[in-house]
């Protein structure tokens, strides 16, 4: 009841800000052609959605994002498990990972362009790199948080190492892994668009650059609005999936609160 009220008030704030946007542009409080009214932006968005251009571009961008998310995520989980379970892997790779982690991904785009070109390979790789580190870190953290008793339990029943990794370690660290993915998801969309803005005529990022050069503020804001909505929808969808996948984790959290 109170949470519904809180949600409603948050929604009201969004509406108020949109209204402020509309009014400030209509009445010329912000007098710039680069500040079009909200309704004009929505109209521009609707126009390019109707022609099928935006859906096609969004589809491309989401595909690249998803491919990068998958590739970087799988690599992060696998290497994270290896890091936490096999000490020699950690010794071998930890310095490289620690060196590469703080590098902002946009900074590595030029060398990636050199080696991977301007097409999907480069863009998916950029997303994968972005996703990789938070997933890796969280996986390692998750594996370290697995109860020693749960692992010993597996051994006392004669369960082999691989099966223990898959059926005890992996599910137990899933809440941490998913938290890593949630961080990665927000970054992945941003980075996919940034990579598209660099070069190549693909996706929402390229559309954004085009519209900037064409001086079409309405389309620019329409893109920004669209990215905001996409990001919101992706996050909500992810939270729902997370609730289903690790319901036990949330149940345990509530229990300890009570």
């Amino acid at each position: 009841m109170t949470s519904r009220l809180r949600n409603a008030s948050g929604f009201a704030l969004v509406l108020a800000l949109l209204l402020l946007w509309e009014v400030s542009a209509r009445l010329g409080w912000v007098a710039s052609p680069n500040w079009p009214p909200f309704t004009a932006v929505v109209a521009a968005l609707a126009r390019d959605v109707m022609t099928g251009e935006i859906p096609l571009l969004v589809g491309g961008t989401l595909w690249r994002m998803a491919a990068g998310l998958f590739a970087g995520g799988v690599a992060g989980v696998v290497l994270g498990l290896a890091f936490a379970l096999l000490p020699f892997v950690a010794r071998l790779f930890a310095p490289i990972v620690e060196l590469l982690r703080p590098i902002p991904v946009p900074a590595v785009i030029p060398p990636l362009v050199l080696f991977l070109g301007l097409d999907d390979t480069m863009k998916v790789t950029v997303v994968a790199l972005t996703v990789f580190f938070p997933v890796l870190t969280n996986t390692v953290q998750g594996v370290r948080a697995v109860e020693a008793d749960a692992l010993a339990m597996g051994r006392t029943f004669g369960i082999g190492a691989l099966r223990r990794a898959l059926f005890i370690v992996l599910p137990a660290s899933l809440p941490y892994i998913l938290a890593g993915f949630r961080i990665a998801l927000a970054l992945a969309l941003v980075v996919a668009v940034v990579a598209e803005m660099i070069a190549g005529e693909q996706g929402v990022g390229h559309y954004l650059v085009m519209m900037q050069f064409a001086g079409r503020a309405e389309e620019i804001y329409a893109t920004v609005l669209l990215l905001g909505m996409l990001g919101y929808a992706l996050n909500r969808g992810f939270l729902l999936a997370e609730r289903r996948m690790i319901h036990w984790w949330f149940a345990l959290g509530r229990q300890s609160d009570a």
Partner: peptide
């Protein structure tokens, strides 16, 4: 030298050895 098939260990902390998922 390894957990034998004849013996099973029962842990003190059931919350840690049971799998909540």
């Amino acid at each position: 030298t390894a957990p034998p098939p004849e013996a099973v260990y029962v842990f003190q902390q059931y919350t840690r050895s049971l799998l909540p998922w």
